[in-house]
Amino acid sequence: MTLLQDTLLVALILTSFGMLVSGRLGAYIRMGALQGVMIGLLPLVVGRATPTLHVVFVAAAMIGLKGLVFPYLLFRALRESDTKREMNPFVGHVPSVFFGILALLGSFWMDARLGFPIHSSAALVIPVAFTTIMIGLFLIVTRRTALSQVIGFLVLENGIYAFGLAIVYEVPILLELGVLMDVFVAVFVMGIAIYHINREFDHIDIDRLNTLRG
């Protein structure tokens, strides 16, 4: 079980690094979908051997929402805006990857320092969650297009979810569905916002939103 879990977590880090290195918005959305599916599978392999029905149900909802619905919404927003690439991010792709390596290093260090009261079989979950949170924040801060900021938000949310998973294994189902619902509404609203930004300004570059239209 632990080999499977480690593989899943390493693949999770790799999708975050893929977003740091890639410049195509389509690739961002695909990586985000992949990461969503893996985050959905995580509760099935972390911790106890046989997952309960409620864990399976939440996992299925998570995979459906993050793996299918969000990519659909975001690809629609991408088609309508005429943008294909993340041009000139505030921090380039190569320094971004170095930031990712530093974030991972910092997460391992922080995890060793803080000493969370969790089962040792889930030891890798905490550093991976920290890294995912930091990379999500980094994407929001350093990327220019509105769409990559939505993806950054989703990565951040994935990280927080993984963190919660390691600390409290079983959250009441109502709470989990509530969080999922909130994220869904957020992405839905942001998709509409991207559509309107694009219609008003003919681009989705957030750095140019503070200049007046001539």
Binding site: F17, V21, H93, V94, V97, F98, G100, I101
Partner: peptide, 8 residues
């Protein structure tokens, strides 16, 4: 970018 991926 490819080589930095290898470093990562």
């Amino acid at each position: 970018r490819l080589l930095v991926t290898a470093i990562a």
